[in-house]
Design a binder for these strands. Structure first.
Length: 182
DNA sequence: GTACAGATTGAG
DNA sequence: TCAATCTGTACT
C-alpha cells in the first residue's frame, strides 16, 4: 500500500501529526533516481507560544514565514551557516506550527541520522522552501501501511534548544520510533 | 552599519 | 572541545 499523504493529514493538531509522521516514508526524486526512507524521529514546534520556535511571539521574518503556511508545506532553513533543517508546516494558514524531521530509517546507516545529514542526503536546499508536499513532483510523503504501536513511540526532550529556558527545553515534544523489525 | 548567537556536525 | 559559516535580530 502506497498512499500519498493528503492535506487533511498535515492540517491536524501538530503533536498528533508529529507522532503520526513516524513510520511514514519520505520520497525524494532526484533526476531518475528516488531517495528517501522511513521517518523515525520528529520534533514539534508550536509558535507563537513556544519559546524554542522561530515564530515565538508571533513574529514573521522572510526566513520563517513558511511556518505560517497551511499544513503540508516545507519550511527549510539554514542553521550555523552550514546545515539545512527540514520542517513540515502543520495546522492551518496563519498558525506557525511545524514538525522538524530529524532522522530517517537506520537502514540508511548514518546517512540520515540527524537533521543536517538528512538534508544533505536528500539533496535539499533553499529551492525547496515553501514546496507543497501534496502537489510536488520531487518530494512528498507516503503511507506504506506501517502501523506503529503506541508502545513503540518514545517521547523525549527536544534537542539543542536549551536557550529557550527549562520550561520549553523540557517539553517532551521529540518523538522517536523504535522499530524492532529493522 | 556592526555585533552576535543559533532547532548541527565532524574532527581533534 | 571547537571551528565552520550565514541569516535574522538587536543594537549603535
Amino acid at each position: 500500500m502506497r498512499k500519498k499523504l493528503t492535506r487533511q493529514f498535515y492540517t491536524g493538531p501538530t503533536l498528533k501529526v508529529a507522532k503520526e509522521l513516524l513510520g511514514k516514508y519520505i520520497v525524494r526524486k532526484v533526476g531518475k533516481k528516488k531517495l528517501g526512507g522511513m521517518v523515525i524521529e520528529t520534533e514539534a514546534y508550536i509558535g507563537p507560544k513556544d519559546k524554542a520556535s522561530h515564530a515565538y511571539g508571533g513574529k514573521i521574518t522572510p526566513r520563517n514565514k513558511a511556518e505560517y503556511f497551511i499544513g503540508g508545506h516545507i519550511y527549510i532553513y539554514l542553521v550555523y551557516g552550514m546545515y539545512w533543517q527540514l520542517n513540515i508546516s502543520t495546522s492551518k494558514e496563519g498558525k506557525p506550527e511545524c514538525v522538524l524531521i530529524r532522522a530517517l530509517d537506520s537502514k540508511l546507516g548514518n546517512l540520515a541520522s540527524g537533521p543536517g545529514k538528512l538534508c544533505r542526503y536528500l539533496k535539499l536546499d533553499k529551492s525547496f522552501y515553501g514546496e507543497d508536499l501534496t502537489k510536488s513532483k520531487r518530494i512528498w510523503l507516503e503511507d506504506r501501511g506501517v502501523r506503529i504501536r503506541h508502545s513503540q513511540i518514545i517521547a523525549t526532550k527536544r534537542v539543542g534548544i536549551d536557550y529557550a529556558g527549562p520550561y520549553w527545553a523540557n517539553k517532551k515534544w521529540r518523538f522517536l520510533f523504535e522499530n524492532d523489525k529493522i
